[in-house]
């Protein structure tokens, strides 16, 4: 039972990952598709938090904590922040392209956009 609880965030990460992938594969709308990529990305946050979490750890700010206090890992928080920034750029770029697609063709269905094949 304890093993299940400790590994629960891990299963959540896999579940969110699977949801994002399912959404992308079955998407009928390009905006929906980009949002699904964002859902997929959330699974990496869960995984990062899981890795950096320490049972009973305080926030890693040593302003009023004595040195040697158990804190959660601050490095994964920095990683996550970088991840957020990088992926926000990619999302913005993808959405900008979707806007362009809509301007050009008037549809958002990926099925209607099959110019390249074979």
């Amino acid at each position: 039972m304890t093993a299940l609880v400790t590994h629960l965030p891990f299963f959540v990460a896999i579940w969110v990952l699977a949801c994002g992938l399912y959404g992308i594969i079955t998407s009928k709308n390009l905006v929906h598709l980009v949002v699904c990529v964002a859902v997929l990305q959330s699974s990496t946050y869960v995984l990062l938090v899981l890795v950096g979490f320490r049972e009973g750890g305080a926030a890693p700010v040593f302003y009023d904590l004595p040195l040697g206090t158990l804190v959660v890992d601050p490095i994964v928080q920095a990683l996550m922040l970088t991840d957020v920034v990088v992926e926000a750029t990619v999302m913005a770029l993808l959405l900008a392209m979707v806007v362009r697609v809509y301007e050009r063709t008037g549809v958002l269905d990926p099925d209607a956009l099959l110019r390249l094949r074979g």
């Binding site: 992926e87 362009r100 050009r104 956009l113 390249l116």
Partner: peptide, 18 residues
């Protein structure tokens, strides 16, 4: 301004982001 490059770029963007 053309749909072809947009389709290519979206396919490229989504797969490589994954």
């Amino acid at each position: 301004r053309e749909p072809g490059p947009l389709q290519g770029a979206i396919n490229f963007g989504v797969t490589n982001t994954i």
